[in-house]
Design a protein around this nucleic acid. Sequence first.
DNA 1: TTACAGAATATGAACGTTCAAATAGGGTTG
DNA 2: CAACCCTATTTGAACGTTCATATTCTGTAA
Lengths: 346, 346
Amino acid sequence: MPKTTLVSLAASLGVSRQTVSNVINAPHRVKPETRMRVQHAIAESGYRPSAAARQLRTRRSMNLGIRLMPVVDGINGSILDRFLHALTESAQDEGYRLTLFCAESDSGEIRQYEELLKVADLDGFVLTGTHYGDARTEWLLEHEVPFAAFGRPWSSVEDPFGSGHPWVDVDGGAGTEQAARTLIEQGHTAVGFIGWPAGSGAGDDRRAGWKRAMVAAGLATDTLDIQADDGVPAGAQGAERLASRGATALVCASDSLALGAAAKMRQLFPEQASGTVIGFDDTPVAAAVGLSSVSQPIEDAARHIIAVLAHELAGTNFPGGEEVPERHLLLPPTLIQRTPYSFSSS
Amino acid sequence: MPKTTLVSLAASLGVSRQTVSNVINAPHRVKPETRMRVQHAIAESGYRPSAAARQLRTRRSMNLGIRLMPVVDGINGSILDRFLHALTESAQDEGYRLTLFCAESDSGEIRQYEELLKVADLDGFVLTGTHYGDARTEWLLEHEVPFAAFGRPWSSVEDPFGSGHPWVDVDGGAGTEQAARTLIEQGHTAVGFIGWPAGSGAGDDRRAGWKRAMVAAGLATDTLDIQADDGVPAGAQGAERLASRGATALVCASDSLALGAAAKMRQLFPEQASGTVIGFDDTPVAAAVGLSSVSQPIEDAARHIIAVLAHELAGTNFPGGEEVPERHLLLPPTLIQRTPYSFSSS
DNA sequence: TTACAGAATATGAACGTTCAAATAGGGTTG
DNA sequence: CAACCCTATTTGAACGTTCATATTCTGTAA
C-alpha cells in the first residue's frame, strides 16, 4: 500500500493539502466541522507528517543535541543514566528528539555544533559540565544557537542569574552546608572536608558550603580542609590525614572520595555506630554500601532544562503562553541519610 | 551571507548541481580534473549537504535509534555509559547519528518504532536486553526493519547462530566458568553460585558456566546454587546461606550480588586475605572496592554492532565490499582479578 | 439585487537533494 | 563519413511539507 501523505489524505477527503496541514498546525483556522472530519481521517489512516519534509521547509528538525562526555569516573558518572533518561523522556513529551554525539574536547564539541547545525538542523543543545571560561557557551551565544546548560555559568560567577543563557543547576554548596550542619548537630566539632583542588566551579562551591556551616557554628576550618583529586584511595588518604588532625566526621565532594574515606573512618573508629562520612551525588554505590550522600534532583533538573529550551524555541510563536519557565534555576539538593549497610543475619 | 547549497556551489563553479552531487556520492563518475576542482570548492566553502533534503529524497536519515531502558539498578546499569559512548562514537565514524527514545515496555518500544520509522525515517535500531520470546525482534523482522541486538536471541536458543538477525553478545557462561575455575585452582572445593531466578537467558547462561567448571573438576553443585533477585542485601543473604553449607568462595551473576556477598564473606572469614567472591560486569563499584569481576568487552560489542548494522544498511550498494562483519558474534569476557581494597596507611 | 467583508479553503512556489533520462563530447569502427 | 559507443555532463521531475497569496463561500447591509 502506498504511504499516506498530506496530499493523498487530502485527496481522499476531497479537501486541499493545506487544509489538512492547518488542522495539524493551526486548528483554529479551519471550520470545526471539517476539522473533525480531517482529524478522524488522520487517526484512521495513522498518518504522521514527515519530519524530513517539515525540516526542509521550516529549517527546524525538532531535534536537540547532547554530547556524551568521555567516561572518566564510572562512579560519579553513573548518574548520567538518570539524567539522560529524564532528558529524553521530557523531550519526547514536548515533541523533541534527542541526538547524541561525542567529542574529545570543548573545541571538538564546537566543531560538532557547526556540523550538526549545518547538516541536521538541530534546534538546540543541552550542555553539561560547564566550567570557568567555557568556550562553548561563548560560541553558542555568539552564533545565536539556542541552548540550556546543566551547570551555572561559572565565568560570570558574580551574578550567574544575569547570564545571557538559560541554565539549571543544583546548589551544591547548600548540600555540603546541610551535610556539615547535620554532623555538627550530631555533636561533632571537627568536621573535615575532602574536596577537589581549587579551580573547579562546582568543587569550590561545595567547599564553600561546608565552610559556611562551620563558620556559622563558630568552628575552626583551617586544618580541616583537604584538596585531593577524585578517587577512592585519595578519599582514604584524606580521611587518615584529617583524622590525625582531630576530625571525627567528614564531608566529601564526591561519593568516590567518600567511599574511601568511610572505609578508613570505619577502620579508625570501629566503635562508631552511625555513619560519620557524607558523600556527594548519591550514586548507586552510596546506596549499595549505605553511605549518606547529598542527592541531586537530577530528574527535575533535566525536566526543567527541556522546559526552558522548548519554551525558548517556541517562544516567538506563543508570546502570551501559559507560565514561563525560569531561565535560571538553582535547585536544592537533598541529604540522604543512611546507616552503613550492616551485613547481619536476616 | 546566504547558505551554500548544491545549486549555489555549482553555479559558482560553472557546473551543474548533479556534477557536484556526484562528486559527493559517486566520485568515480566524474572526471578527475573536475572532481578535484569541485572537492576543493567544497572544502573552501565548508559546504555540507542538508540531511533533510537527502532524507526526503532517499528515505534514509542516517539515524539509528536506541531505547534507553528504565533505570532499574544503578550499579549494573552504569556500564550503559560505556556502551552508549562507544556506540555513538562508532556510529559517528560511519556517518550515522544516534537518536534516543524511551519506552515503558516492549510493546511501547514497538509503538515507538512505528512512530520513528514514519516520522523520522530511522534507518535501523540497536536492541538491548533481549529475552525469551522477545516480541520486538519478531516485529522488526516481520516489518523488515534493519537492526542489530546486543544479546543473543534467546528464543531460538538451540541455535542462536542460525538467527535471522544480527546480534553481538558476550559469552557470560565462559566468564563464570573461568571465574569458578580460577577459584577451584586456588584450592577451593566448594564454590557457590548466587544468580537470578531461572528464566532469564543471561542468568541461566551464567549459572551454566559456573556449573560446567564445577562438574569438570568433579565437584558437587546441588547445594551450592542459590537463586535470588538482584541486589546487595540479597547477595549478603545468599552468601550467608552458602557459607553455612560449606562454601568458601562464590561466583555471582552481578556486582550487586557480589558486593553484598563479599562484605558478608569478609565478615564471616576475616582472616581470609584474598578475595573469594567474583562478581559480574566489572562495574565502577567493583573497581572502587577491589572486587574481582567478569568484565564484558562492551566497547568492542558496541563497535561491532554498529559495524554489522552499517554493513547491513549499505550492503546492497557494496556487494563486493571489503571484509564482511560477522552477523553473529559471541565475544569472550575477561576476568579482572583484584584484591580487596585495603585502606592501610600510605 | 448588489456590494462588501470576513471566514474558509485552495493554489503556486519553494526548501535542497537525488533519480531517471537526455544531451553533448570524443573516439572507434565499418 | 556515417554509424556507433562510451564517457562526462546536464536537465526535468519528484520527495512531502509550509509559506504567501489567491480564490470561493456565506452572510449582512445598503
